[in-house]
Amino acid sequence: MPLQNGARAAAAEAEAQGKAAAAGPRRPGAAVVVLLLLRVAALCASAAAAALAATGGAALLGRAPFRLLLAADAIVAAYSAFEAVAAALEAAGGATLLPEPVQLWFDFGHDQGFGYMALAAAAVAARDAASCGGGGREWGSVGAGAATCARADVAVGLGFAAFAFLALAALLTGFRVACFLATGSRFAPPPSSY
């Protein structure tokens, strides 16, 4: 008895699943591990920048650019912690938390958005930190000492580092989106055998 349309489709799907099972599960490559490392580095840099800005006392928290740096880097640290967990789960099991296309676009868009937020906050705080310790009218009234100025400089530098790690992660997630659009998978296609 010939196969009907529904049975023919089911047989073709079963054959495709059999071939996929014979080939084995697709193991995440080095890109997932690099993405995990970038996420952890962004988490560390942004959390340290937020901690330095938060513990700077009235000399730093009394200034709007450093309150912005604190808020932006705290948000980036929370996002990076979430994404580090998601990348670790992907590296361990090969599956994403959300459906694959949603996860790829979520990662790519949020890496860019939060990266630019970290960059803007660090740039504003850097402009303000440049006048620290110079006896300027703004800082002189608060009494910023050398330790406060050093803390401000390090917080700004860590804010820029958080941006750099997120920018690199955005490049990698952009590559994953491009692979998905080209091949239907977030992994680069295997090299051709001919």
Rank of each mutant, 00 (worst) to 15 (best):
Gln112Glu: 04
Gly113Tyr: 09
Tyr116Met: 10
Tyr116Gly: 14
Met117Ala: 10
Ala118Phe: 05
Leu119Met: 14
Leu119Pro: 10
Ala120Pro: 05
Ala120Val: 14
Ala121Val: 08
Ala123Ser: 14
Val124Lys: 09
Ala125Leu: 13
Asp128Phe: 00
Ala130Ser: 12
Ala130Lys: 04
Ala130Tyr: 04
Gly133Val: 06
Gly133Met: 12
Gly134Lys: 12
Gly134Trp: 10
Gly134Asn: 14
Gly134Glu: 07
Gly136Val: 12
Gly136Thr: 12
Gly136Phe: 06
Arg137Glu: 14
Glu138Trp: 09
Glu138His: 14
Trp139Arg: 05
Gly140Asn: 09
Gly140Cys: 11
Ser141Phe: 10
Val142Ala: 13
Val142Gly: 05
Gly143Phe: 10
Ala144Met: 07
Gly145Asp: 04
Gly145Glu: 01
Ala146Thr: 07
Thr148Cys: 02
Thr148Gly: 05
Cys149Ile: 01
Cys149Thr: 00
Ala152Cys: 04
Ala152His: 00
Ala155Leu: 01
Ala155Met: 03
Val156Gly: 04
Gly159Leu: 02
Phe160Tyr: 14
Phe160Gln: 03
Phe160Pro: 00
Phe163Leu: 00
Phe163Lys: 00
Ala164Gln: 03
Ala164Phe: 01
Phe165Pro: 01
Leu166Thr: 06
Ala169Glu: 02
Ala170Val: 04
Leu171Asn: 03
Leu172Met: 09
Thr173Tyr: 09
Thr173Arg: 08
Gly174Val: 04
Val177Gly: 04
Val177Pro: 02
Phe180Ser: 03
Phe180Lys: 11
Leu181Met: 14
Thr183Asp: 07
Gly184Phe: 07
Arg186Leu: 09
Pro189Phe: 10
Pro189Glu: 15
Pro189Gly: 15
Pro190Tyr: 15
Pro190Asn: 08
